[in-house]
Amino acid sequence: MLTISQPDAAEARCNTTFEALMWAMARPGQVRDMGEPGLAPVVEALIDRECVVHTDSARLAQFIANTGATPGTIEMADHLFHETLDIEALASVRCGTALYPDDGATVVLQAAHGTGTRLRLTGPGIDGVCDITLAIPPAFWSLRAALCAYPEGFDLLLVDARAVIGIPRSTHVEVL
């Protein structure tokens, strides 16, 4: 009789985190629970030697280096992990091309949910409209609108402790 191997702790963590990230991307604006706080669980679920990663956090940089990922500048990185929002720096983020939309970066940002700018989201994954409030200034959303010429663009994962909200490039964001 074959015995079923049980998921080890890391596998269980990554599976839970990814399920939260996947549904966050599939249902933009809805809050999902990753099970663990911070950006580290996202690194663990997605990042390995095949990635070029940029981060603004020295603490996270060591954690990312342990995955074997290549550190890179914002222009080079396919995954960005930022604890603070630097709008000017993000202007050079990779957005892919119409030929290769998958070259657009995944930007994982620490941002408080429920305070700050009110936003109205429409697009795939949203049944009608979805109103959310995020501690991200309106200037960022105009930058995103300028960069995301669909299907080019970057995809956002906004992490607040254990909660995550996804805003893929297909979502239209209106600042209220």
Partner: peptide, 28 residues
């Protein structure tokens, strides 16, 4: 002895990254 769910961890990470991109650009 085996990886959980047959696929090894690096295969799963690659699929996860691509699945997120696939959701972000529907139909692409």
């Amino acid at each position: 002895a085996t990886s959980y769910g047959f696929l090894d961890a690096s295969a799963k990470r690659e699929l996860r990254r691509k699945m997120l991109k696939a959701i972000a650009v529907p139909g692409c």
